[in-house]
Nucleic acid binder design. Structure first.
Lengths: 217, 217
DNA sequence: CCTACCGATCGGTAGG
DNA sequence: CCTACCGATCGGTAGG
């Protein structure tokens, strides 16, 4: 298994990052049977919720019989867990790349905000929403596993926010700021509709940064 | 039916507001059979989710048989809807009182932030969490009804934020600020644990206000 | 508010 | 990956 860290000093390139993760078997190939199922599952879980989505719904979405699902996954819950695990892995890699590509600490934070907004409102948005709204449906054992991955993801944010605090650019507590940002950015999935025109992702990012009231560099 | 607006020019007093709403039949008496069921339902819906909570769970929580539930509510979904409707009614009244009791526009915003944090992390917290996390489980018809009530609630926030914008104290867009605040404040239910010591509700409120970067009055 | 029960649907399995 | 099926559980009802 190659290192998750290796390709990340290159410019942000989601496709390259994805290919690298697939090669390391950290994320399923979206065109494999497993990959397609996980993508459909993310969509269904987000739209109907995990509990309302039946194994028959999942099977129908990829055109197989419900009994055949259990050839790929031991239980329905394993599917939920896989959606979450692969989503965090991909997003951690993307966020790290975005952060490393940025220069100043201020730019690093902006890159994180923008990347998280992109994750939530872009292609992986369904899966990100599942992570937020279906947490309770995960067994405690699975929660613990996913939390380990989430800690790595959150450490990225804390690195950027702590650096800004040390610079004196941030007055509020970095931990609190991150928790508030996590809620605020996740919540955009319920109201932000870029395709309807109006605010662009860049504009939304600027609004978030402006709201944080960082002192000028 | 007396007006929802009448008692709200007096100082904030949750108990008085609750009694007034009960008298007007807008909220169930917490000691009535219906009121007790709704409170238990809110707790179960938050802990297990609406779908995982069975009518047998609900009945057991108030010490009756599952068939008897349908004497009080026509369907399980009606229980979810009632939890949401009564929660918004109560919180709208409480928020309005908090806002009216405040002097400056800046103080009004702070009062709203504090009151919403109290709602989310206090006695009605379970029900507030249900409103956030179980929205999808509500039928479209019920969603429309609840949205009508939520619009009134949100109008309170927009009044306060628009006033600050006109004062020149707020630089960001009021609508965006409210959406971000809605997410950030709701999300506290997942991590903020005042009983563990550390940050008080007042302290948390201050952090939120500081984060908004309002220019000094 | 209880007893007794229903039709439907659920996640999952066996054997190919 | 399919066919055929299972035991369990679900929301809700009838009649008192």
């Amino acid at each position: 298994m190659r290192s998750l860290l290796k390709p990340l000093d290159m410019p942000v390139n989601q496709e390259k990052i994805l290919q690298s993760l697939i090669a390391d078997d950290l994320v399923s190939d979206p065109e494999s049977a497993r990959g397609r199922l996980l993508r459909e599952a993310a969509g269904l879980f987000r739209d109907k919720g995990y509990e309302r989505t039946t194994v028959r719904d999942l099977a129908a979405a990829v055109g197989i019989q419900s009994g055949s699902l259990f050839h790929h996954f031991r239980t329905k819950e394993d599917i939920l867990k896989a959606v979450m695990v692969e989503t965090i892995r991909l997003n951690t890699a993307v966020m790290r790349a975005a952060m490393n590509a940025a220069g100043s600490n201020r730019e690093k934070l902006k890159a994180l905000v923008r990347a998280e907004l992109e994750s939530i409102n872009g292609q992986t948005g369904e899966a990100m929403a599942v992570l937020v709204f279906e947490w309770r449906s995960l067994s405690e054992a699975s929660q613990a596993d996913v939390l380990t991955l989430r800690d790595i993801y959150e450490a990225l944010w804390m690195t950027a926010l702590n650096a800004l605090k040390e610079d004196g650019a941030l007055t509020a507590d970095p931990f609190i700021v991150r928790r508030m940002l996590a809620g605020a950015l996740s919540w955009t999935v319920t109201w932000y509709r870029p395709e309807r025109g109006g605010l662009t992702l860049e504009g939304l990012t600027d609004q978030v940064i402006a709201m944080l009231g960082l002192t000028q560099p």
